[in-house]
Design a protein around this nucleic acid. Structure first.
Length: 461
RNA sequence: GGCGGCGUAGCCAAGCGGUUAAGGCGAGGGACUGCAAAUCCCUUAUUCCCCGGUUCGAAUCCGGGCGCCGCCUCCA
């Protein structure tokens, strides 16, 4: 499988040392609920993870939860709560949101605070090797000691100095240096260290978790392309300074979710919470929305676009529902149909293996659906549906019951109407007709349950 | 200002040196229907932001424009 590596700006073969892919995806800072833009990397790289597993790799996925940070502290102060309480709350909400998004939990997702002792140890080793220095309670990484600095983001050290908009901290030896450890200010969470009480800097947790849980060289490190600089550049500098080895083989960066062309961001106020969008359009529509655009490109959010994704998902289920009424033993009459399916299956995988082209792969699925219908042969329909199920499984799409998502708003309201009319019949003691309606609906897979609060209808799978 | 990316039909979106330029939505026509809805079938880019160049051949490579966006500060 070839993937675009930000570091080399080329497609490169994913080549793990063994049958295990070691993968790290940057996680959330738990100071608020995640918005739908935050969800993009989680969904995209979850799909990549599943695809790699389908290809026979074992995937170990690590994702940090940043539970100590300025924003958490600020939020806690605003709400008069302890930072730890705020962090714990939003950590729980984060995992609840992942579930809503249909994203499998990472293999390991430790909170940063669980790694503080390891980070202290790591910083000590950087100090020993002369890559860091202490200034009254703070520890800074010395960027100039790492010759590869700037390679990932494609900017030279000189360029950055020239265009720097950062106010220079007098205490830093070089304006580019960044904090590995921040001495505690009053009323802030802190941990003991050789340099006094404090807390770790932003970039170190990812490095330490990655080194400790996955090893010195990992296969994939992923996140949004807004993390390339400074976050990932700084991670790389720390890790490689210490180990002298390649930190990450493939750096993957997804494109931003935009709203009318502008990045969705909390600070711009143009965001929707992930859970609200899921509630409105459903898990699979959101997933389909993301996977129908190449992961590296910007993707524009709109309710129309989500509506379209939802409709597309509904139609695929429609196809599955129709096809799966046919017994699975029924085969296509034309033997050439299976070679057609084989060819499409090959194409589907070729799309995914070339830079994880999910839109291309989904187009192949549509081709299968189209051809399956066109054959006007129940066996072809049935085989086509089986292929769609099989192919889409690693994308986390179209694995649900075919009949339930088929039910649209209109059908629901019609059902409600029928139920209402039937209730009227029951009031008028027209039980013969009411029972007949119940019988007929049962044949259609709708079960009516009469109770003291009225009649509920339930779809039978 | 520096670095990076994007610009393909009304809309969404693949393609990245030779394909009839995938696929979806929408629209138009047809089948089905008492009429609808749903579903299905057919049609829908002589052309890929513009201008040059390389090449037998370019949406795809190179040069120059134009437009939009991201990063350079916390950010998925």
């Amino acid at each position: 499988m070839r993937l675009y590596n930000t570091l080399t700006r080329r497609l490169e073969e994913l080549s793990p040392a063994d049958d295990t892919v070691r993968m790290y995806v940057c996680g959330p800072t738990v100071y608020d609920l995640i918005h739908i833009g935050n969800a993009r990397p989680f969904i995209v790289f979850d799909a990549l993870r599943r695809v790699l597993e389908e290809k026979g790799f074992r995937v170990i996925l690590v994702q940090n939860v940043t539970d100590v940070d300025d924003k958490i502290i600020r939020r806690a102060q605003e709400e008069g709560r302890e930072p730890g309480e705020v962090a714990l709350h939003y950590t729980q909400e984060y995992f609840a949101d992942l579930e809503r998004l249909g994203v499998r939990p990472p293999t390991y997702s430790p909170p940063a605070t669980a790694f503080v002792p390891k980070m202290v140890e790591f910083i000590e080793r950087l100090l020993e090797k002369g890559h860091a220095y202490v200034v009254d309670g703070d520890v800074y990484f010395s960027v100039r000691t790492y010759p590869g600095y700037g390679e990932l983001s494609g900017r030279s050290v000189e360029e950055q100095l020239a265009g720097a908009r950062v106010e220079v901290d007098e205490r830093k030896r070089d304006p580019l240096d960044f904090a590995l450890w921040k001495g505690a200010k009053p009323r802030e969470p802190h941990w003991p260290s050789p340099w006094g009480p404090g807390r770790p800097g932003w970039h170190t947790e990812c490095v330490v978790m990655s080194l400790y849980l996955l090893g010195e060289t990992i296969d994939i490190h992923a996140g949004g392309n807004d993390l390339i600089f400074p976050h990932h550049e700084n991670e790389r500098a720390q890790a490689e300074s210490l180990t002298g080895k390649t930190f990450v083989r493939l750096w993957l960066h997804n494109g931003m979710l935009t709203v009318r062309g502008e990045k969705m961001a909390k600070s711009l106020g143009n965001f929707y919470y992930a859970r609200d969008v899921v509630k409105l359009f459903g898990t699979e529509a959101v997933r389909y929305f993301y996977l129908s655009r190449h992961w590296r490109k910007p993707l524009d959010f709109s309710f129309e676009a989500l509506e379209e994704a939802k409709a597309a998902v509904g139609r695929v289920y429609n196809f599955l529902a129709e096809a799966e009424r046919i017994p699975s033993e029924v085969r296509a009459q034309d033997p050439s149909f299976s070679s057609f399916l084989q060819e499409k299956e090959k194409k589907f995988w070729a799309e995914l293996e070339e830079d994880f082209n999910t839109p291309g792969a989904l187009a192949v699925v549509q081709e299968i659906i189209g051809e399956s219908y066109k054959r006007a042969d129940p066996g072809a329909l049935r085989e086509g549906a089986a292929a769609v199920r099989r192919l889409c499984r690693p994308l986390g799409l179209f694995q649900g019951e075919a009949s339930a998502p088929e039910l649209g708003k209109l059908s629901e309201e019609l059902l409600n109407l029928v139920v209402e009319l039937r209730s009227q019949l029951r009031k008028e003691k027209n039980f013969a007709l009411a029972d007949k309606i119940r019988e007929k609906l049962a044949e259609l897979g709708v079960e009516l349950r009469d109770g003291p609060e009225g009649t509920r209808w339930v779809l039978k799978a």
